[in-house]
Write a protein that binds this DNA or RNA. Sequence first.
DNA 1: CGCGGGCTTGAACGGTGTCAATCGCCGTGG
DNA 2: CCACGGCGATTGACACCGTTCAAGCCCGCG
Lengths: 246, 246
Amino acid sequence: MSDRRRTPLYIEVIDPQHCTPEVRRQILTEVSFFSDLKPAELEAVDRRARSVGFTAGDWVYREGEPASQLFVIATGVVKTTRLSAEGMHTTTGLLGPGDFCGVLPALGFDAYQESAQALSGACLLAFGIADFNWVLGRYPSVSRAALSAVSLRLAATQDALFRIGGTVEQRTASVLLELADKLGVRRRTGVLVQTPLSREDLADLVGARTETVSRLLSRWRRQGLVETGRRWVAVVDPDALAEFAV
Amino acid sequence: MSDRRRTPLYIEVIDPQHCTPEVRRQILTEVSFFSDLKPAELEAVDRRARSVGFTAGDWVYREGEPASQLFVIATGVVKTTRLSAEGMHTTTGLLGPGDFCGVLPALGFDAYQESAQALSGACLLAFGIADFNWVLGRYPSVSRAALSAVSLRLAATQDALFRIGGTVEQRTASVLLELADKLGVRRRTGVLVQTPLSREDLADLVGARTETVSRLLSRWRRQGLVETGRRWVAVVDPDALAEFAV
DNA sequence: CGCGGGCTTGAACGGTGTCAATCGCCGTGG
DNA sequence: CCACGGCGATTGACACCGTTCAAGCCCGCG
């Protein structure tokens, strides 16, 4: 057990400069709705963006603020949340490199429909609304691709919606597997979710209380399915979890 | 009480012809993503569509079928559902005149991501995928507008998602009010939801069991908030319901 | 008039939320 | 380097909402 005496996470300090021109270019090619652009066009797009750095816990924007920017995640992880009745956060998405957030899902509104918060240190590319419209007008393929991208997001949200029909156990298993897939790194035993993640964060993600999630993880830990610690989780037996995940 | 001896619903028989050219034209102007088009352009769009009639209970398309058409609802109400683990339906949306469904929310997939079923008699306009792509290519404004439209749908789905956090009472109140708004007709007492709607249908809509919904409606009926019968519901006191609806 | 499907109601069970107490890791300051 | 303080995690007890299983009822149709 000496393995997990201390946090096994890499605590990287991301500074804005860390988003080098090479990284920016690379990321842009991974964004689905720029995928049809030629290198020269990508370069033109790149010039319209500026990069912004965030440290874990920073808010990228908040629900209700005037929507003015489209963000593309270059490095790090960002979660989007919505406030329900009593300051209660509900997580609506978990975004990694190549994913987007901001005005695009909020088209047709003049304010952001959700808040976005950096889970880890992160570097984002930001497009002003005018700049992005310029891109949309100039490269029609981007419009179509953006349409698919938002549709994918829609499908993912519908997935989440009908998963709620299931138990906390099922949802937690799904979320853990998704986390391991999106930002897991292999360790000697299992896959570590490479981002600080408290029980409360996890609870928000699955739509449950921290106590419930804690109990569940304790059981799974005893059964050898996961390893956990203060603000971190690792998936040891993905297959067993997949059994639960509907 | 002699009021509700028998079904108070109009059992209209919608025939496809009922979707007259005038209705079609009118509806197209109400579809958000055609709103920027000039009359002549709308006409061109109209010629690409064909109208299809459905009676209550008919499936417009089913989850998993190859996605080939975009539908715009001209008259009537359509619900979209997804199958979960055990044949369990989860309703993901409730669509009225001017709303759309079909390939658009499924862009980036080659099969429908959901099933669509007519709740009442309904007339839909159908665009083949090639026809709609033609429209997208010819009128760039449609692409942008479609982007907003899908975004709106996304927001609505996220709404539904975080409403689930609440109780069955809250969700049922919301759904009843939405139903009354979308397809209610005024009666001497209250607003009748003009479509055959069993307790089971309602239960699917709110994500609960028929027994639970039945109990709830019984209570509300005793309190004078609603009137109900075999396969129908009427909202008597919308304000009181709104109190519950978060 | 009788049957059947939909509706209602009852009772028991179980998963989760809630409240509350305790433990233990980790960063801080002496 | 060690003691301390605080926050996050854990665990228990309990209440409650909603499901589940099981009867029985009633409307509306043949």
